[in-house]
Design a protein around this nucleic acid. Structure first.
Lengths: 353, 353
DNA sequence: CCCTCGTGGGTCTTTTTTTGACCCGTTTCT
DNA sequence: AGAAACGGGTCAAAAAAAGACCCACGAGGG
């Protein structure tokens, strides 16, 4: 037998390590995002005994990674830098590197970032995905480029996690589509504005609902102001978007039972921008809307960053990303593993907390 | 704070790891060298409870690294390959890489290999040093070259650990000096013969005691057979030698108390080939002998490999190697750390079993 | 202002793990 | 044949981990 990586050696020699490492990292990461954090709340969060957390905190404090005050536990500078920089290493530990490579291969995309954890069990994963996507986003930024960003919690996380460091000049941020849903924080307009603010960039908004009758569309397209924004959107050089499950998105768009049934029969599993995709990546339905018009997503846009997490989105991710020339995909471990399951692949990875 | 290596990160996140790792590796290594090994003998060897070993063995067996039969515990193929290939990784874990770099810098040698463990506590370390030196030796072998090797336990270990894989043709192995001491296994002649056998090379022996009167020397030098061997020795392209402490070597050479006193007063700490070095590397005494005549060791020899281990040899190693253009130095962790102590350097490394 | 809530810390008991100390049957080598 | 060494089993002691609780403190809200 040939031992390839240091990680393998370590796991072989000390099989108990990965678990410890992962748990501790998760705790550290949680503290990173929600400091100051209390013992009890952490314990509740990870669904373990308080004493367990207590012990871990003690270790971490001895290591100088956290400080513990009356307000709760926070990270030291070392701790913060550890959370930020440990990912590549931890990833190899969790077998995420392997996951990423498999997904790049299966989905034919440029790059895949798998964030450790499961969005559905651990809200921190969402922020982590946001950070990962934000990192990619920043690398794609060029002077004078137009950045289109869609709505949803994933894109909101990207906006949240985007650092406020200086960006190239002349960037314009636009929402990829019109308004959808009720929560203002998750609407494309809101997110676009927040991103623009962080990048110190200009932004234009689309003050319209996403779903309109064809007639209304025709009228609005003649509006100069709206036309301008739409042109901007369609000249975007970067696109950041989430991915929805067909069912959920149909419901959110207020589809009636008949429409739902039709979608189901057509095998729709994923949705982006009002396009419903079946599992082989075909568009089965299209809700007319204002904004990015792409039946082949990303063919015109140079950099597309898709962000989605959670096991339940696995099929949707495959449907949407797997058959389009997306450049980047950011997802979580849960979704990544589920996708491999869908492809009938075994993944003998370390199972974690 | 900037985190440089994965090892640092791991040690920071899980400080209990290194210890586990090192202990388990040491056990594995011991089994590697003395399989089949019994629980009780291992426990006695490492001076821990039998049950501790038992538990470790269980883990290792679950990992498929060892098999346990009635004869004792042995390594599986995986286990063997682990022991052989883990060294670089483990070294970084033990901070040995740092040690090596410091020593290269301090002693001004081409390369330093530090073997984990302490020769004085763990006999396995000797074999490990032998293996390390043998590896270097094999790399230096070229067709038609003359290899001179001296006596002592260290060089014997090199001979033992030398694999019997095919070597370049036309190699001649010679003892670096005449006979010394009583144990035939550790005499240069014996070792040279064993090395030659393993390399399937020719060898010539020096059937003479190392210490002779000047008169006898003169006579013998005129002997053609002896002259031939001596010429061979002095045309050596590779030299493998151990390093002795001045005190020990003087005693072994049968020095009387007066001579001992003189050596002590002259500050002799190290010995090689009858040359006694003080701590600054000066030759303070020279016992005339037959063989390699080098007051500047290695000036004519292309590749010199010095092998020595144990804390008590630290000063000797510095004296001998530190001031000569030796190419390679193989030593153990104990000696390496002691040397840094001698140089007044702190070494905050992981302390092990 | 007090009162509540969440915080870290202390302490006790229970549970689990680890370790020590045996003994036993078998194999191996002398 | 017999001694020595092997793995394995077992039980009790010890240690470590975890659970459960209470306390004093301080921030924030009524």
């Amino acid at each position: 037998m040939v031992l390839t990586s240091d990680r393998e050696m370590l796991s072989l020699l000390a099989p108990e390590i990965p678990e410890i490492l992962v748990q501790r990292y998760h705790i550290l990461r949680k503290i990173f995002y929600s400091a100051p954090a209390g013992r009890r709340s952490l314990a509740a969060y990870f669904q373990v005994g308080e004493r367990v957390i207590r012990r871990e905190i003690e270790v971490l404090r001895n290591q100088g990674l956290v400080t513990v005050e009356h307000k709760g536990v926070s990270l030291t500078a070392t701790g913060r830098s550890l959370v930020k920089s440990i990912t590549p290493f931890l990833k190899s530990f969790l077998g995420l590197t392997v996951l990423e490579e498999r997904l790049i291969d299966l989905l034919k995309v440029k790059d895949v970032i798998v964030v450790p954890g499961d969005l559905e069990n651990d809200e921190v994963v969402l922020w982590e995905m946001g950070r990962a996507a934000a990192r990619i986003l920043r690398k794609c930024l060029k002077e004078g480029i137009v950045l289109a960003i869609s709505g949803g919690t994933s894109c909101a996380a990207v906006a949240d996690m985007l650092p406020e460091t200086p960006a190239p000049a002349g960037i314009t941020v636009v929402p990829a589509r019109g308004g959808l849903g009720e929560v203002v924080d998750y609407q494309a307009n809101t997110i676009a504005a927040r991103v623009a603010q962080k990048l110190k960039a200009n932004y234009r908004l689309l003050h319209l609902p996403d779903s309109l009758s064809s007639k209304a569309l025709q009228v609005l397209l003649r509006e100069k102001k709206i036309k301008e924004v739409l042109d901007l959107i369609n000249s975007a050089g970067i696109l950041v978007h989430g991915i929805g499950t067909a069912e959920e998105m149909a419901r959110r768009r207020g589809a009636d039972p008949r429409e739902m049934e039709r979608l189901y029969k057509q095998g729709a599993v994923g949705e982006v921008f009002g396009f419903f995709y079946n599992s082989t990546g075909g568009v089965v339905e299209h809700i007319p809307g204002l904004g990015l018009y792409l039946d082949d997503l990303g063919s015109r846009v140079e950099n597309v960053i898709a962000v989605a997490g959670g096991r339940r989105k696995a099929a949707a991710i495959v449907a949407v990303v797997g058959n389009h020339p997306h450049d980047f995909l950011v997802l979580d471990e849960g979704a990544a593993k589920k996708i491999l399951e869908l492809f009938g692949e075994a993944h003998n990875n370390i199972n974690l907390v």
